[in-house]
Design a protein around this nucleic acid. Structure first.
Length: 995
DNA sequence: ACTCTCTAACGC
DNA sequence: GCGTGCGTTAGAGAGT
């Protein structure tokens, strides 16, 4: 949905004069026909407070003055009127509890949506009214996107089915769009169908997934002013169908045919681009997807066409003769600083970038398409270096076919991810629940979703939302949740966990916390409320109880949670996989929405912050967790008739971990249920403490860091759960993650501590003997800002800078995660001087700093795990023969340089004179034995290399072609490179026998 | 050798 | 015009 400014249609609006906003709704019918609907008659407006005693004459004068001021700022606006009218309406502000149900407000209706902001500015600054002096007006709902305003007022949500009744729409005399159906109508004739029953089905969206390849130059990131677009691959799918119905690729220069793919080759880039434009118009997709299309492919195509002077290319939207525009946007937030990016808007089509979606919804250690596909689809793709892409393009039709297959895979994988992760179902359900359009979910933040729900609910209650001026950040912050002191240790008795269900939403409901129930301290005396009608929160705020007036935040929350219970119940019944997808997406959206209401009220830089609410919520929460701890420890005692004294060993925000002292899981569960029921009864509705699970055994390392076996039934544990420790953190290398995971397995599941110790010793020995796969040593960290904005030097930041100097095209950018290893250097060199790109290390054979990995990566996490379990853990793990390193395996580069190409004895590795070639005097006589060993060594490595190579060929989908992949994310890649190096070395050694 | 600050990532 | 919240741990650089 969007809007344009045009002539209002006179058939509908006799009174309309001049320009007006026309809403355009794009969509698809049940039968799959694309639709463009021009909606007339909806006018932009907002509210302002009405000073008491303001009569019709004053309003007339205000209108005149405003109109005059508006003309000054909108002098290019030709129509006679900017302010259409000012109405006196009865409304109430959502802020603060008030006894009056309503009071007069001014509803100011303007001609165009952009005039809302300029008119608000005039009223904010204040205007001169005869006899009254300069008056400033508080405005209400003056910062709402016009399309969203329309949706709210017409009860339309994102992903909605809309009906336009027979006779209420008219054909357009001159076609304006490329849609199959187009018409115009009046906004009040639209019928919005709530997404229930037959209208909860998904529309049959047409989805285009594409990927482009460019011929970049070495050392440069592809630049549309130099580098041509050489291939574009496309896959088109109908939502809900398993297989795409279009697969094609457009190539510059000839390309051999590919099975089941329509290959189109052209002599000029212009033909490639225009053929793609024609495809987009012919397929007419509702949704365009791809990987990083918003920041790369889409702007690249538009800019490239501009450089080539192809003016007809950017007509990709659903409006006839309208060009797609490219906008420079700056995105700034306190957390992320200012980031510049390009934005391409395409009329009538939603762009859904899988990279953005996955970055929002999943925490991964790498977001490359390769790594994401491996993670979710269990399938790898080749990572071909951009310089090789140019070589393939400049080869022949077979090498270009090679590239086309690669490009097609990059177009198909986003579609596979979209299906696998149910993005359309989950996002459409989120749009339906929160009421915002689908496009907002990727392009906007969390707060717009709460805002949309709040505005809708407020409208039903005749309430309006004020536009509060940004108070600035000095308003500061407020106290959050309590984290109970952690009694660290290894617990070999079951630990029961009690949790408050949806704690913050329940608190807001139970205590009726809302903008509209908060008592303004200035009004308290005047209101004179009896104590049984109010609650005083632990922070000292007063809110009226629901018997006096129900808050709308609690009402929104009740509806969200009730709807979630319904969705979960329906999900249990549902059999059809598509229906299940819809319902599961819905219950998830409802849960997320309920939880973000609290965050919205506490967002000091948000649209309607109210710290009285958020700080009250957390203060009740703190009180409740303390109360729970006290109650458990007071009631479950030997004195109270129980076998043991219960101890709360830990708790965070809404949970307490209790050791009841019993030794069976079953007994702990029974006590857990009893405690939950007993404590719940001491709270008011709907606050409920639930027994959730038992941990047994349980290793508590510190606050927010623990591991344990998770039991929900007394027969068998469900899983091992780890929180906060290295296994779940993304900033540790795989070696550390694997070691910690393996040790926890041995300790918690197998209950075999000596085996865990032996495992650690073996692994350390492997590390020190250089038998560790490089992929296990790669550390990744996010590059969150530009280098200059870092106040201290950090390993990943400095490496990113060095990589940028080497090759700007492949260097990490802000927002990317940087992969690095730590290499040996001079003593006392800082870690940031020793970080290096793993691929660079492979190619240049840099020595790994094993000591760093041992002392700075492995030792502390392991000590934290073993210390509660093992006395003398440090001695047991880090002393003994396994700590001996074999330095001769990795000759120090510095020494090698000093001695030149000094040969060493094949048998014992002692240096020998170059005239001896093979063996030292000591080993002379073992020629036969050692020669055989050399041959065997080469043979073994060749076989190993062959196996790894085949694995990579399988991954790239062809056993007949060279492997080109250089993926930093793929363990096989590192192994292949390492084996290749070892093999070459072994061959050189073998050659020395043949002099 | 110690503390303080910055940065990143997590739990809830 | 846009941006949910706070609490905690831990590594590493920087300063004392």
């Amino acid at each position: 949905m969007d809007y344009v400014v045009g002539d209002g249609h006179n058939e509908f609006l006799q009174s309309s004069s001049g320009l007006a906003a026309i809403i355009r709704i794009f969509g698809v019918t049940k039968e799959g026909h694309s639709v463009c609907c021009f909606v007339h008659g909806f006018e932009p407006y907002f509210y302002a407070n009405c000073p008491s005693g303001m009569g019709p004459d004053d309003i007339f004068r205000l209108h005149q003055i405003l109109e005059g001021k508006m003309k000054e700022t909108n002098n290019n606006y030709k129509a006679p009127k900017c302010i259409r009218r000012i109405e006196l309406v009865q409304k109430r502000s959502i802020m603060y509890y008030q006894q009056e149900t309503s009071q007069p407000f001014l509803k100011i209706v303007v001609a165009l949506p952009t005039m809302v902001a300029s008119c608000r500015g005039i009223l904010d600054r204040g205007i001169q009214i005869d006899g009254l002096g300069i008056k400033s007006f508080m405005t209400y709902e003056s910062n709402i996107n016009f399309s969203l305003r329309f949706m709210i007022d017409c009860n339309i949500v994102g992903g909605n089915w809309i009906e336009v009744p027979r006779g209420k729409y008219n054909k357009i005399s001159r076609s304006l769009s490329n849609c199959q159906l187009e018409f115009y109508c009046l906004f009040s004739d639209l019928i919005s169908h709530a997404p229930e029953g037959e209208f909860s089905t998904m529309a049959p969206y047409r989805i285009l997934s594409f990927d482009i390849e460019c011929a970049g130059r070495k050392g440069h990131f592809p630049d549309p002013s130099h580098d041509p677009v050489i291939q574009i691959a496309n896959v088109v799918t109908l939502l809900g169908e398993g297989q795409p119905f279009v697969r094609n690729v457009m190539t510059l220069k000839s390309c051999s045919s590919i099975a089941d793919v329509d290959v189109m080759s052209f002599d000029t880039e212009k033909e490639v681009l225009l053929t793609w434009r024609d495809l987009v118009r012919e397929v007419d997709p509702d949704i365009i997807i791809g990987y990083n299309i918003c920041k790369f492919d889409m702007p690249y195509l538009i800019e490239r066409a501009d450089v080539l002077g192809i003016a007809e290319f950017p007509m990709l939207g659903r409006i006839r003769n309208s060009r797609v525009s490219i906008k420079d946007t700056t995105f700034s937030s306190r957390q992320h600083g200012t980031r510049e990016s390009k934005e391409v808007t395409m009329e009538g089509r939603v762009q859904f970038d899988l990279l953005q979606a996955i970055q929002r919804d999943y925490k991964l250690s790498s977001y490359s398409l390769n790594s994401v596909s491996a993670h979710f689809l269990n399938e790898q793709k080749e990572d071909v270096h951009h310089s090789i892409i140019s070589d393939l393009h400049n080869g022949n039709s077979e090498t270009r076919k090679r590239l086309a297959v690669y490009c097609l895979k990059d177009a198909y994988l986003p579609q596979r991810l979209l299906d696998k992760l149910m993005f359309i179902y989950n996002y459409v359900e989120m749009a339906r629940v929160t009421g915002v359009p689908l496009s907002f979910l990727l392009s906007r933040g969390q707060s717009i979703k709460v805002m949309s729900q709040l505005l809708r609910k407020a409208k039903q209650k005749n309430l309006i939302l004020p536009n509060v001026k940004q108070a600035g950040s000095e308003q500061g912050t407020f106290e959050g949740a309590t984290v109970l002191e952690a009694r660290t240790g290894f617990y070999e008795k079951p630990i029961a966990t009690l949790d408050f269900a949806s704690l913050y939403p329940s608190i807001m409901m139970a205590y009726n916390l809302c903008y509209s129930t908060l008592v303004n301290p200035e009004d308290a005396r005047k209101l004179n409320l009896p104590p049984e009608c109010v609650n005083k929160t632990p922070t000292g705020e007063t809110f009226v109880r629901s018997n006096l007036q129900k808050g709308i935040l609690p009402e929104i929350l009740e509806e969200l949670l009730a709807a979630r219970r319904r969705a979960k119940a329906d999900l249990k019944e549902a059999k059809d996989p598509l229906e299940r997808a819809v319902l599961d997406g819905r219950q998830l959206a409802l849960k997320i929405s309920a939880n973000s209401v609290y965050g919205f009220t506490g967002a000091t830089v948000g649209q309607l912050p109210c710290l009285e609410i958020s700080s009250s919520v957390t203060s009740y929460g703190r009180q409740m967790i303390e109360h729970t701890k006290r109650l458990v420890e007071d009631k479950f005692t030997v004195l109270g008739g129980y076998e043991h004294n219960a101890e709360v060993i830990y708790g965070d925000t809404d949970s307490v971990m209790v050791q009841f002292g019993v030794s069976s899981v079953d007994a702990a569960m029974k006590l857990g249920r009893e405690a939950a029921d007993y404590i719940s009864s001491t709270f008011i509705n709907p606050i409920k403490l639930e027994f959730e699970k038992v941990y047994y055994p349980y290793l508590l390392i510190s606050k927010k860091r623990y591991a344990g076996l998770y039991w929900t039934n007394p027969q068998k544990f469900d899983k091992m759960e780890t929180k906060g420790i290295e296994t779940v953190r993304r900033d540790n290398c795989l070696l550390v993650k694997n070691m910690v995971t393996e040790c926890l397995n041995k300790i918690l599941i197998e209950r075999d501590i000596p085996a865990a110790v032996q495992y650690v010793k073996n692994t350390i020995s492997d590390l020190l003997r250089n038998r560790m796969d490089l992929s296990l040593l790669v550390i990744t960290k996010a590059l969150t800002k530009t280098r200059d904005s870092y106040k201290v030097k950090a390993a990943h930041v400095e490496l990113a800078e060095r990589m940028r100097k080497r090759d700007a095209a492949t260097a990490p950018n802000v927002g990317d995660r940087v992969a690095y290893v730590i290499v040996k250097a001079e003593t006392n060199a800082k870690a940031y001087e020793r970080s290096e790109d793993p691929i660079f290390v492979l190619e240049n054979n840099n020595p790994i700093d094993h000591k760093y990995y041992l002392e700075n990566q492995i030792s502390k996490p392991l000590m934290r795990i073993f210390e509660p379990i093992l006395k003398n853990a440090n001695k047991e793990l880090f002393q003994g023969s396994h700590m001996m390193s074999k330095n001769n395996c990795t000759p120090n580069i510095g020494i090698a340089k000093l001695f030149g190409k000094q040969l060493s004895c094949i048998g014992c590795k002692t240096p020998i004179s170059n005239s001896d070639h093979t063996l030292c005097s000591q080993c002379k006589g073992r020629e036969a034995e050692l020669y055989c060993k050399s041959i065997a060594n080469v043979a073994e490595l060749e076989e190993l290399f062959g196996r790894v190579w085949t694995q990579c060929q399988e991954c790239q989908g062809s056993l007949l072609q060279d492997v080109l992949c250089t993926s930093r994310d793929c363990p096989i890649f590192y192994r292949r490179k390492k084996v290749q190096k070892d093999m070459e070395q072994a061959k050189q050694e073998l050659d020395r026998w043949n002099f």
